[in-house]
Write a protein that binds this DNA or RNA. Structure first.
Lengths: 237, 237
DNA sequence: AACCTAGGTGTACGGCGTACACTTGTCAAG
DNA sequence: CTTGACAAGTGTACGCCGTACACCTAGGTT
């Protein structure tokens, strides 16, 4: 995977090539396995060479987020605030699903880059353009929270696909016993887990449609926003 | 801080003492500074000694979460589902605010301990007891997402209080210039930031009431849930 | 031809989690 | 009181990590 020119001569590194490579690598092996050393190896260079292009690992991660943000569609024009917000969030979500590393990285970021601020700015702009008061817009952005980025803290997230293979699935009869025991100790969890599993034929496993859940909550919030907006809600009241 | 008995003799370690110490240490120095080595030093023992009480660092973090969960109040009795859920979430939030390390740790957890499952089970139970269908309960739990734990992904989280002191605040006139420039590039961000800052007299900084934002979004969701419940909503429709 | 400098190298340091072989302290049975 | 077993604590070591710092080197400018 070492990047080389025709005659074996090195291709010059650049900040952009470093960031692109980092994104590709994280897509491939997972963010927790991306180290400066591993990335350097990937671009065919000694680890310290990377530091000529990014100040440190934090800045590398910031740069990766910037690349992600660039994948999110701009706001739809003439669509009405609600539809525009919905479309954009779903676009963000698509970008996020293409890059599984992005969620934890976004969560960990503390300093906002210009690209991130730009995204937030234009996001806020959609509400303001829709006639929302500055006040309501503010609270509504908080209410959206991470949904602005196309994700929510998942209740049950399946363990990340890692190089280490998971323990072998227990045999079906043991599984049934486990389920029974589970139902005894956590009856409520069992009830909703069973119900959603039933609907799709899968006995266990996620058994619920991530995208559906996401849109369910998103629409619930958007409908709430609409109601508040219509009744001229303000935070001093 | 080495734990010793009267005559200087060691106090026996135990899993519980390890976990308690880990929580206290994380409260004090921040979770990112808690290492097995640092924790061992805190309890007056060599690092490897900890492994006689927890299998590895992951299990240590799981144990810390369990301690946190134990701080959350049980569901209120005879309060109606909405009030019960609201009270409980706010109790979780209080626990979370006492332990700033908990949010990132909760986010990173992948295997649910019995204590966590127990919390979720009784949480789900509040909706079922309120007459919610299993189906609606399922989606409603997803909609709550991390709010069940008393937090949401923050839009602007202030940098964690770390040992390293932050760069000195720029002089006020430079600040004004920065704000002006910011307003030019990110007009919408500037508008909502200004407005919320204005209300509280603080020129900049968070300038918005975390608790208020949290309750705003929580109530928006709960009201949405109520509406769906009242109209007998079901996911197949 | 001489020089400058941006980009790439090599070595090293202090941290991390934890495997593995060991000593030590405690307590129950003989 | 002795003994021996087992749990608790120790010491050393390995392979990772991010990155400071001094150095070399290839290209382009003068």
């Amino acid at each position: 995977m070492v990047q080389q020119g025709e005659g074996g001569q090195r291709v010059r590194l650049s900040r952009d090539r470093v960031l692109q490579a980092a994104v590709a690598l994280a897509d491939e092996i997972g963010i927790e396995a991306v180290s400066m050393r591993r990335l350097a190896q990937e671009v065919g260079v000694v680890p310290m060479a990377l530091y000529k292009h990014v100040a440190n690992k934090e800045e590398l991660l910031d740069g990766m987020v910037d690349l992600l943000v660039a994948e999110i569609d701009p706001p739809a024009r003439d669509a009405g605030w609600k539809r525009a917000v919905r479309l954009r969030v779903l676009s963000a979500r698509r970008a996020l699903l293409r890059h599984p590393w992005a969620r934890p990285v976004l969560e960990s970021r503390v300093n906002k880059t210009p690209a991130v601020l730009g995204y937030m700015d234009s996001f806020i702009g959609m509400f303001l353009a829709g006639g929302f008061s500055v006040d309501l817009t503010h609270h509504v952005m908080h209410a959206l929270g991470s949904r602005m980025w196309g994700f929510t803290q998942e209740l049950f997230q399946e363990p990340a696909p890692s190089a280490a293979e998971p323990p072998p699935a227990p045999p079906p009869e043991a599984m049934a016993a486990m389920l029974e025991q589970m139902a005894a100790v956590y009856p409520n969890v069992a009830r909703v887990a069973m119900a959603s599993a039933h609907d799709e034929g899968s006995v266990v496993g996620p058994g619920c449609d991530d995208q559906f859940e996401f849109e369910f909550a998103l629409d619930l919030l958007l409908d709430g926003f609409e109601r508040l907006h219509a009744q001229g809600w303000s935070s001093r009241s």
